[in-house]
Design a protein around this nucleic acid. Structure first.
Length: 841
RNA sequence: GCCGGGGUGGCGGAAUGGUAGACGCGAGGGCCUUAAGAGCCCUUGUUCCAACUGGAACGUGGAGGUUCGAGUCCUCUCCCCGGCACCA
């Protein structure tokens, strides 16, 4: 065949890619249409924090995969919404401002423009007309509005919370800023914990619904399980123990009341109310003891992370001198104080059952408290107190437990709960691992909390018509040094008059956490310019819920849970139309550097996507990111792999110019095309992008190996299924074909994009496969003797379904004969069209 | 410790309980070329027996089990990664 002109055979992505990006943008190809008659499909990716480092190849993995998915959906006739925006509040911008004096908004704008440029150079089909930015006052006006609604409904409240404090930097720290050894990541000094008034959101009020409604959505199992575990719902009972010689009692939460006959002590947290009363001298204990207790409590409360880590699990504690009574068996339980009991968990007090709980056992050992065994495990171990191995069994039988004896523990749990409730000694309760959500930050670069503190009226919400409370422009971003946000230093902003009584008052100077803006951004895409509401109701009605939400595993617990909570709240107050925001959630694995380590500047293993695009083009990069490995698993970057994808595309380019037949596509190649259409269709739907790419490659291999090549009609079909994965090249080749055929007809120059669906003569839409062609004419049937492969038959499709035909032909095979050795099989397993197995023994 | 994910050639990885290793990379050989590059063709799990056609055994972290048949299902166990971590 004649070699085509060089310019046509040379695959030059850097030339064709920017060209089509410009055309697509000019024609607004990816703008979603509100209220379109087509079925809607909302694909959501997690909007990025626009860091100074630019796009990470990890972003690109997720976004180009979803881009392919969105493109395919469009080609199938859906009205697809695939938007992007910027989650631009956050510490890095603030730290950068402290270092350089450059205002965060300026740095952020710069980073966004860089991100945008990078996105566009990848040909991602985002609807840029709906771009949102959490730091835009028109956006955060609504973040603040949501807060006011929470406040109005009593779900936002102020409370004393322990915070991480760096005494050296004089600032509060987020948990992420405190290293595992308890030091501040920036300055390396030990951090402390101290109490501070903070705003909290009552997410615990939604705990049950957040679990329950997981049934309504399609999340992958591991995501669902992680959410359930994070919420950590536990059914148990609060048992009360009267304190001897007082009118006081102490309540302990437990999930294992069956073991209560084995209780030998009670431990309360240093924060427990009874401790304060003790120190106030409300009970009859000596001054010396009070002093001792006071010292322990003080030490425990001030204990820094560093101290706690260095102590490990070593138990500490102090005896209060008080005893409580276990009303079940009238045992006296000494009351101790120890910091292994957390004030914020359960009732802040635990009943010690050292025979059946590891921590209680360690505590008992340390302070010589008795250990009683009340459950026998399935191993029949009844070892006595002295050698008691600590056991936290899941099943077993009760002993030493009065009326519970010989019962299965699960039955015993029910029985004793009934009994305790009947006697008025306990009350069934549900406890959660989930805590209320601390919603204050003492930083500059966040949404101001729209609250005013008035000396006479107290806490006063900023009236809605005064939103947004804009972040003032400041000169200094350094923390105030008192633990307040830098905003506290902006006198003219802080000092306002009270909206209620008009007297002088002060603004709240705390700002919201990074999560605030990202809780509801997917709603703003639906109506980004709206000044009267979060978004127009009809638009939300049309688009919600998000059909597919795709993001990283690291956001499974926090962001996903928080945003579901906020959305449910908005549903309850009638703002949004559905009870769950995301119909389907899938997560992707992270991309590691070529050395198998997490990409990081300090390792020098960061892959710069711009360089890859510059060398190989966006199509290659996108294809490779999907080919690397299973979408939901961690993958390692490989430069050789990128080259392989480039080679593949170049081969497509070459074959499209050279191996085209005037006749219809025949035989294997035709069957291969239809099989590929089938595979690409279903695997894309299942987000199995690595095998999508593999099947495209497989097809191109058979194209290359074919005698006559593809017909033009079938080349079009191939380009259509390639298009979501290599959009630029597909469009270029498509247009090239169009102009060749149309120039002959009409000489018309401009042609419709491959991505526009209309019922043209070429049927520009996602191609359908012919089921008849997908089936092989001649199939291979493996023949086994005793489950071992001894031969394969080539047999016509319709014959392969008949046992008689397959069996007789199989018996003819020399090797099969040899292994049967003249014996008649005792059994023949025949799976029609799949396999035959002779069983002789 | 708890929860989750994973372990398959030299490497990344395929595989509705039914021919393990698709596809890509790497490697070896050949063609093309003045040469280099690119491209094209062949080979490529291990071991052994054959010797150019082929055949056998072993083989999916390990040990058992279910099954005509197990990478896939069950039990136990080891290792790696991620998250949480004294949560009663």
């Amino acid at each position: 065949m004649k070699a085509p002109r060089k310019s046509k055979t040379e695959y030059n992505p850097t030339e064709i890619e920017p060209k089509w990006q410009e055309v697509w943008e000019k024609e607004g190809l990816y703008q979603a249409e509100d209220f379109s008659g087509k079925p809607k499909y909302y694909v959501l990716i997690e909007f990025p924090y626009p860091s100074g480092a630019g796009l990470h190849v990890g972003h690109i993995r997720s976004w180009s995969a979803m881009d392919s998915y969105a493109r395919k959906k469009r080609m199938e006739g859906y009205n697809v919404l695939y938007p992007i925006g910027w989650d631009a509040f956050g510490l890095p911008a603030e730290n950068y401002a402290i270092k350089t004096g450059i205002h965060p908004s300026k740095a952020v704008a710069q980073n966004i423009s860089n991100f945008k440029k990078q996105c566009k150079s990848l040909g991602l089909s985002f609807d840029w007309s709906r771009e949102v930015n959490t730091t835009d006052p028109n956006y955060y006006k609504w973040t603040q509005w949501i807060f006011l609604k929470f406040f109005e409904k009593g779900l936002a409240y102020l409370s004393d919370v322990t915070v991480n404090w760096c005494p050296f930097c004089k600032t509060n720290l987020a948990d992420e800023e405190v290293l595992a050894n308890g030091t501040h990541e920036r300055c390396g000094n030990p951090t402390e914990r101290r109490m501070q008034k903070q705003w909290l959101l009552k997410i615990t009020a939604y705990a049950d619904r957040l679990i329950e409604d997981l049934k309504l959505v399609d999340y992958s199992p591991r995501i669902r399980i992680q959410q359930e575990n994070w919420i950590g719902r536990k059914e148990g009972i609060n048992i009360t123990y009267p304190i001897d010689g007082t009118n006081e009692e102490v309540g302990c939460f437990t999930t294992r009341p069956d073991t209560n006959f084995g209780a030998t002590f009670i431990v309360v947290a240093p924060e427990h109310p009874i401790v304060a009363k003790l120190l106030d001298g409300k009970f009859q204990i000596s001054k010396d003891e009070i002093k001792k207790i006071g010292e322990y409590v003080k030490r425990a409360k001030n204990k820094s992370e560093l101290d706690r880590i260095s102590e490990g699990r070593e138990k500490t504690g102090v005896f209060t001198g008080l005893y409580a009574t276990n009303q079940l068996n009238s045992t006296k339980l000494p009351i101790w104080i120890s910091d292994f009991v957390l004030g914020s968990v359960g009732t802040g007090a635990v009943v010690g059952v050292p025979g059946h709980d590891l921590r209680d056992f360690e505590f008992a050992q340390k302070f010589n408290l008795p250990v009683i065994r009340v459950v026998v495990g399935s191993d029949g171990d009844t070892s006595s107190i002295a050698e008691a191995r600590q056991v936290q069994e899941k099943e077993g039988t009760m002993i030493n437990s009065g009326f519970l004896n010989n019962m299965d523990i699960n039955l015993a749990i029910e029985k004793i709960m009934d009994y305790l409730e009947e006697k008025g000694w306990g009350k069934r309760v549900v406890s959660y691992h989930l805590r209320d959500w601390v919603f204050s930050r003492q930083h500059y670069w966040g949404e101001p909390i729209p609250i005013i503190h008035c000396p006479s009226c107290g806490i006063v919400p900023v009236p809605e018509d005064q939103l947004p409370v804009e972040l003032p422009y400041v000169e200094k971003y350094e923390p105030s040094g008192t633990g307040e946000s830098p905003l506290a230093n902006v006198k003219e902003w802080v000092e306002v008059s009270c909206p209620k009584c008009n007297k002088p008052a002060r603004r709240e100077t705390d700002t919201m956490p990074n999560w605030a803006g990202s809780n509801w951004y997917f709603l703003r895409y639906l109506d980004p310019e709206n000044n009267n509401a979060i978004a127009d109701k009809d638009k939300m009605e049309y688009w919600m819920p998000v059909d597919l939400y795709q993001g990283g595993f690291e956001h499974t617990t926090l962001h996903l849970l928080y945003s579901r909570f906020v959305y449910k709240f908005l549903f309850d107050i009638g703002v949004v139309p559905t009870s769950e925001p995301y119909a389907k959630r899938r997560s992707h694995g992270i991309v590691l550097g070529p050395d198998g380590r997490k990409m990081s500047k300090s390792f020098g293993n960061v892959i710069n996507p711009d360089q890859v695009v510059g060398k190989f083009g966006a199509d290659t990069l996108r294809l490779y990111e999907m080919f690397m490995g299973p979408f939901d698993q961690t993958v390692t970057w490989s430069i050789e792999g990128v080259e392989g994808c480039f080679r593949f595309l170049r081969r497509v380019w070459y074959l499209s110019h050279s191996k085209i037949s005037r006749q219809k596509t025949t035989g294997n190649l035709l069957a291969s095309l239809h099989r590929t259409i089938k595979k690409v269709s279903s695997d894309t739907e299942d987000l199995k992008f690595n095998t999508v790419v593999a099947s495209l490659m497989e097809f191109v291999n058979s194209w290359q190996g074919s005698k006559n090549g593809l017909s033009k009609e079938d080349l079009r079909k191939f380009l259509l299924i390639l298009a979501p994965f290599a959009p630029h090249m597909s469009e270029e080749l498509w247009q090239h074909m169009e102009s060749r055929s149309k120039n002959q007809e009409s000489g018309k120059e401009k042609h419709d994009s491959l991505f526009i669906i209309h019922n043209s003569i070429h049927g520009q839409s996602w191609p359908k496969f012919d089921p008849a062609l997908v089936e092989e004419e001649i199939v291979e049937i493996p023949v086994q003797v005793n489950g071992r492969l001894r031969g394969t038959l080539q047999i016509a499709k319709e014959e392969a379904g008949k046992q008689s035909a397959v069996e007789s032909q199989a018996r003819e095979d020399e090797r099969v004969k040899k292994y049967l050795a003249g014996k008649n099989p005792q059994k023949i397993v025949f799976i029609p069209g799949r396999l035959i197995n002779f069983v002789t023994s």
